[in-house]
Design a protein around this nucleic acid. Sequence first.
DNA 1: AGAAGTTGCGCG
DNA 2: AAAGCGCGCAACTTCT
Length: 565
Amino acid sequence: MSTIPVAERRVALVSDGSSGVVAVEIGADGDELSRRVLTASELPGYVREQEENDAPRWIIRSAREICPALLAEGVRLGRTHDLLLCHAILRDTAAVSRPLAASLRWVRREPSDEAPALFDVEIDDGPDDPVAEALDQFRDQRRVIAESKDGRLTLLCSAESAGGLVAEEMRAAGLPWNERVHDEILTATLGARPAAGGLPRRMVELGDEVRGILGDPSLHLDSQPKLLRALHRVGVHVESTSRWELAEHRHPVVEPLLAYKKLSRLLSANGWAWLAEWVHDGRFRPVYIPGGVVTGRWASAGGGALQLPRSLRPAVRADDGWALIVADVAQLEPRMLAGMAGDTAMAKAAQGRDLYAGVVESGAVSTREEAKYAVLGAMYGATTGDSGRLVPRLRKVYPRAMALVDEAARTGEDGGVVSTWLGRSSPRPSAEWSRMQSRATDADADQAEIAVARRRARDWGRFTRNFVVQGTAAEWSMIWLAEIRHRLQRLPEARVAATASGPFTRTAHLAFFLHDEVILHVPEEQAEAAADAVREAAAVATARLFGTFPIDVPLDLRIAQSAEK
DNA sequence: AGAAGTTGCGCG
DNA sequence: AAAGCGCGCAACTTCT
């Protein structure tokens, strides 16, 4: 585990409540050594100078607040401690005996968040002394971090803070997106782009075909209740209109209806309207929300950045003279599980590119598909169906790994808190959940009450079971991102400028991140060096988490002009 | 009329 | 081949 260098210099950047920023030198004990008041226009130059000088760690409230203005001037922060992101981790962590006191003033509030509630008066009132408040919070956070064993919270907080920077930088850079290719895919799939208000030709044809078969020429296919009734009338007795249920029926309406739904989805989620709203100057710029999921995964707001359909990946294209590095980890979560549990048998199965092939070799199951369902079932808590049936076989072959997730599930069912490898802890179940559980143990509880409580307990157990694995995978990914970013900063300037203006016109940069996958946009002549950086970063992430424990985390990596697979 | 809930499907 | 985890979003229906 890494530790903060003793000599690390720290500078807090605190908004003074208007447009200025106070830069505060912080001593070893978190005390104020000196301060300097900067106007908004002085800040970028000051930061650049400090970065070139000795690159301090910047104590900031949030990358979200401070980075856009700096990036607009082409200035990047090297290392930070992000008080909002770290507050979320430290106030809930079970890794120390006394976690951080929760404070509404250090909770991230999205611009879209509703304003009302009684607290707002308190929240919106600026503090008497924003500098003192920020330094107090930093000292409190440092105290908690210092208490964790092996420096785990140190690593988690620095990785999380780096993630905050990466999110802002990726938004500033954007994902190179070829609007012409996107348009061609839409036209080839949906038919010619309609005049305002209409549906594309292929959808009109399929819709007419479906309405003809259902014998209702005016049927509105996008209304689930109406469609359901029409299906029942022709003898297709489904309970929902979902794809998997429809696919079980052999009726002439099924094929065109499924085709229509597929096209309808593409049009409404990523059609021409999406293109016009989200892609500008050849870049898709989503809003990333680091730590937006309780497990530590990122969320996104707007643009559906985390749901881009694979069919549109050809539209992700490097600029002329530039290349993409597209890299992802196969089966990251079970690899993390093997590492956490120290399960050498599972780690052996994880050697090489395909963990599922290794599971088959171990003799636990006989086909790769079975291995996949068994492993996913183990991490998600499947109890029924083929997946649930296969899970017990894994218990025999990988008892340590299975004990770890089974224990996490049991803790959750009992209302307890579980933690990731680095110490992010699961939320406590709701008061309503706890009331339900205790009522179920009352002498006069009825059978229905008990059954519902039991089911809710198992639901929560599946959540905590998955939390430890998904959350640790998120930690690996955050270190990976941070290490990639760190290495890219050492590459020289590009010979050919990228087409979009901005802070990364001549700089290799991260352009996209999705749980266990990254896309880099890099000058062509640096493609190999950037690919090496991605590989080295993965190796470092694995070693930071699991030291010398022999767990493989191999990458599928390619250098290409487009992200097409 | 607008908020809130539901359905279905895209991603890992 | 299963129906187990985590999300965001659009379009719809139902509630107020």
